[in-house]
Design a protein around this nucleic acid. Structure first.
Lengths: 236, 236
DNA sequence: CCAATAGTGTCTTTCAGACATTATAAC
DNA sequence: GTTATAATGTCTGAAAGACACTATTGG
């Protein structure tokens, strides 16, 4: 943004191509899954890629708005939780030359997610995340971006309340513990887990709401209004 | 990066302007200071701004390379530690319209830093950071970027070895503790501090090197070769 | 009654925090 | 010897981890 030269003079032909790519994550079938699209155009036609697009200066107020619009238009998803991951830019990620992208991560609850109906329905699919990637090779440098996203989320789950964004509106404490365990890949102590959640005070019991089964009924909880992600003092 | 439309068709006039801005931080006179440049061109001519510039696709291999080149050319600094902070982009940060920037943070040791000699020497200055900003109003949204950088670094100091990048090549453990204390703004227990540093195993004693004074000599330490920033198990 | 899961209590070990003590230089 | 800071040791209270126990439903 600084510099002595005139802006337009230097940038008319050096301006790199700018995109926004979104790593969409959910918890399905006991593990993390990510939403990918099959590319219809060159380059990398036919390859799987992150959901992405261009900034629309007339419509988008800022980068996050662009990410949310792309999420809605291309994947039919309105994600409550979107966070910027990292910028990527070099001369090799796109065969056409120097490009940059702003990578975002979106977390959505596995229930109530709608894939875009219509034209490109068969070119959109959920892929299970194994390790920090998916089975198919991805277009551009999307393998690297996906890996960075999965690593970031796994790390953050250790010390934040981030998994609540993967939950339906109401859930039991045991449900939440299962989600933590699935992402972290290790069992957790029930008593300790509940102590932490209670201390953090980011959930509230839904009065009179219980999940019934052939055992003691479980209290349902929801996120306290107006709260964003909580950072625990230490680890969960 | 995805999308069905042809790339050039959509982007010829929508391509936003891309810059790289670097928040340069050091520890001077007992506190954080940041390097700012006085703008010579419109917009915001005469205002203080972060050190920044455009990507040079022919020279720069990737975004970080661009940040390092800008650091060298505009501020005469070769910073060993550079990390990407965050991308910023909206239609209001630049009066000329939608622009994006990749913000980086560079940490440098207070000793051995050289300001660029010559033409723009009087337009470059160190400013003390008070709270999470500096005294003058900055160009563009640089006040916000600087605040984000300071917050990020302060937080990371709590649980990483990041302050070693603010140290000269050799230093005593007491020196390092002073740096932590200055950034965090609170005193720390010597015994505990040394336990943490020893556990993390990212420093090594320089054999036979001591700082002499009218007291017991202090062992000098350096960063162990090949190590990047260490994350402590908990807090420092 | 039993089976199954929800939810809480208790004990032990570990470790952070506070503080004390010893070490080694200059003078 | 004194002074000043380096470096290490010790004690205590709080919290993490492991585990046991009680609660409440359906069948």
């Amino acid at each position: 943004m600084t510099g002595n030269r005139d802006m337009t003079a230097e940038t008319d032909f050096l301006r790199p191509l700018v995109t926004v790519d979104v790593v969409i994550l959910t918890l399905k079938d006991g593990g993390l899954q990510t939403l990918l699209m099959k590319r219809a155009a060159e380059p990398f036609r036919g390859d799987w890629a992150l959901v992405g697009g261009y900034i629309h200066p007339e419509e988008d107020d800022d980068l996050e708005a662009a990410a949310r619009r792309i999420l809605g238009v291309k994947a039919g998803i309105a994600a409550p939780y979107v966070e910027q991951l990292q910028g990527f830019g070099d001369r090799r990620r796109d065969p056409r030359g120097w490009t940059v992208t702003f990578a975002y991560v979106a977390l959505i609850a596995s229930e109530g997610m709608m894939l875009s109906k219509g034209a490109n329905a068969d070119s959109v699919a959920w892929w299970p995340v194994a390790g920090s990637g998916v089975e198919p090779a991805l277009a551009f440098d999307h393998t690297r971006i996906l890996a960075a996203a999965v690593t970031r989320i796994r790390n953050k789950v250790e010390y934040t309340s981030l998994p609540v964004h993967l939950m339906p509106p109401c859930f039991t404490l045991t449900d939440l513990q299962r989600v933590y365990e699935q992402i972290l890949g290790r069992p957790m102590d029930k008593s300790q887990f509940r102590r932490r959640i209670a201390e953090a005070e980011f959930l509230e019991a839904v009065p009179g709401e219980f999940r019934l089964a052939s055992n003691r009924p479980a209290q349902l909880y929801r996120i306290r209004a107006g709260l964003s992600t909580i950072f625990f003092d230490r680890t969960i």
